[in-house]
Design a binder for these strands. Structure first.
Lengths: 121, 121
DNA sequence: CTGGATCCTTCACGATACTG
DNA sequence: CAGTATCGTGAAGGATCCAG
């Protein structure tokens, strides 16, 4: 996403940009989370992740697969069965994500409080 | 990720959702990063973060401020001078973000490789 | 210099219907 | 059940001009 003429920070084209791209994807984190406990079928994820549409889930899963974070296994059955699973690479990403959720548990209330304080001004 | 015991829906309203919202914001992470080394002026950030528009930066900074992650200090000068700085709360978020950038440094190449492999199909 | 207000374009996303 | 295709809407985001 970027060629920048910026300075020394991480914005130029350092690899961190990549992580941001992956994480910034609206449904990626949630989907990864849905896969964190083992293989899941498309329909299972659909239920597990409330609020995501079939289209977005498919799209997100394909992207994760293309990035080598998940695998897609289709079983030739009727009815068709497709399972997604984290790759080893994908699993390595779960640790940073867990850090994030831990942060949210620790400081989420503070953020909400700040938000309300500024809204009620 | 504490709660997500069994058949729980991750998305429902667990605190992690908040972190996802903050992080998912396209420019938030980059902006936080720009502030991680100390107070920065609006214009400085604009240069530091290549590719961001003035509008988006303002908008992102306001949201960070509302969330209690940054402070805005305006000095009554001519020309006007406004500095943004991470709050203590904001600084706590930097650790998870650093985890992410570390991940990117470690595994970014793998992701790119996977991406190219799948694109070249 | 900072940042608000418009305008305008693009696209992300959901809903729906259809294929295998 | 899994995935694709199409369409429509609303939001995101850039460019530009204006104000303090």
């Amino acid at each position: 996403m970027g060629d920048f003429t910026g300075g020394d920070v991480f914005l130029a084209d350092c690899p961190a940009r990549l992580a941001v791209e992956i994480i910034t994807d609206k449904w990626a984190v949630v989907t990864l989370y849905g896969l964190s406990r083992g293989p899941r079928r498309h329909g299972e994820l659909l239920d597990l992740i409330g609020g995501i549409s079939k289209k977005m889930l498919t799209q997100t899963l394909r992207r994760l697969t293309e990035h080598g974070l998940a695998t897609r296994m289709a079983y030739a059955q009727v009815p068709q069965r497709v399972e997604y699973e984290l790759t080893d690479l994908g699993k390595t990403l779960m640790k940073p994500i867990e850090m994030l959720t831990e942060w949210a548990e620790l400081y989420g209330a503070d953020v909400v409080a700040a938000q309300e304080a500024s809204t009620a001004d």
